[in-house]
């Protein structure tokens, strides 16, 4: 498996060329920054005071992450996972993939890696988008100072890593369902129901037992009012535990599927 993996990953990465994946990453990452830019250009009179605020960057970061953590990241994880699995179903290509001289674990891991890279791209591009949400109004509106105390790269990386881990259980669960369902509506429907369920459970003190809640809990846990209950050990151990569980279960289902193509 180890020797084949880079080749198979390259092969899987090529498959998403000219698919919806690129637009998903681009749209998901730049949607919120674009809205922030538009709002700030419309309300340009308030910008000098806003940009002079020493808490400009933390404030921008949190406001941008609100829609990302609550909506865009879970939905992007659901869509990206369905998309990658559906490439084979839509093209009737599972029988070709399954007759390649590869171990099922290699195929499973390579496709999962492609989804994770797409999520990583989304987060990286979103961080660039947040920076653009500050820079574009500054460029176009005269008299606006460049905001001080920019967020450090290590902070940005740590935050992205945290949210990346938070969405792993969603990816792993959706991947297990998507590989098993020829009908793309099944994983999408299950994902949306789970996401709505997670929103509904947020106020519950044991919301952290539900694996689709972690991006939301992580974001809302930082609110001063303490709207939600975050476990003392944080969400990461739960997220990693669920992700491992779903990934193993998904692999067992994939490897033992009766009809392999």
């Amino acid at each position: 498996m180890t020797l084949d993996f880079p080749m198979v990953l390259r092969c899987e990465w090529l498959k998403r060329r000219r698919s919806f994946a690129g637009w998903l990453v681009l749209g998901g990452a730049l949607f919120t920054p674009a809205i922030i830019i538009a709002v700030r250009l419309v309300q340009h009179a308030k910008l000098p005071a806003l940009y002079a605020n020493p808490a400009f960057w933390p404030s921008l970061w949190r406001s941008a992450w609100e829609s990302m953590a609550m909506l865009l990241l879970p939905i992007a994880a659901i869509l990206a996972t369905s998309l990658v699995a559906q490439i084979e179903f839509r093209n009737n290509a599972w029988k070709q993939v399954r007759t390649l001289p590869l171990h099922p674990a290699t195929i499973y891991a390579a496709k999962l890696a492609v989804i994770l890279v797409l999520i990583g791209q989304l987060l990286a591009l979103f961080s660039v988008g947040i920076w653009l949400a500050a820079a574009v109004p500054w460029l176009f509106v005269a008299g606006v100072p460049w905001p001080s105390d920019m967020l450090s790269p290590s902070f940005v990386f740590a935050q992205n890593a945290r949210y990346f881990v938070d969405c792993l259980p969603i990816v792993a669960a959706q991947y297990a369902i998507a590989l098993h369902s020829r009908n793309y509506l099944v994983p999408l429907g299950a994902g949306f129901v789970a996401w709505i369920g997670a929103l509904g459970l947020l106020q519950w003190k044991y919301a952290f037992v539900f694996p689709y809640t972690y991006t939301m809990l992580d974001y809302l846990g930082g609110e001063p009012a303490g709207k939600v209950t975050v476990p003392a050990i944080g969400t990461a151990p739960y997220a990693l535990g669920y992700a491992a569980l779903f990934a193993v279960a998904g692999y067992v289902l994939f490897a033992t599927k009766r009809q392999k193509g």
């Binding site: 084949d4 080749m7 198979v8 390259r10 092969c11 090529l14 498959k15 060329r17 000219r18 698919s19 490439i87 839509r90 093209n91 009737n92 290509a93 599972w94 029988k95 070709q96 993939v97 390649l100 001289p101 590869l102 193509g261």
Partner: peptide, 20 residues
């Protein structure tokens, strides 16, 4: 029926397997 990726060209379809 053929197992091919409709959104790719013939060369790209073969390039996938050339890697494997």
């Amino acid at each position: 029926s053929p197992s091919l990726y409709d959104h790719l060209t013939a060369t790209e379809n073969l390039a996938l397997l050339q890697a494997v």
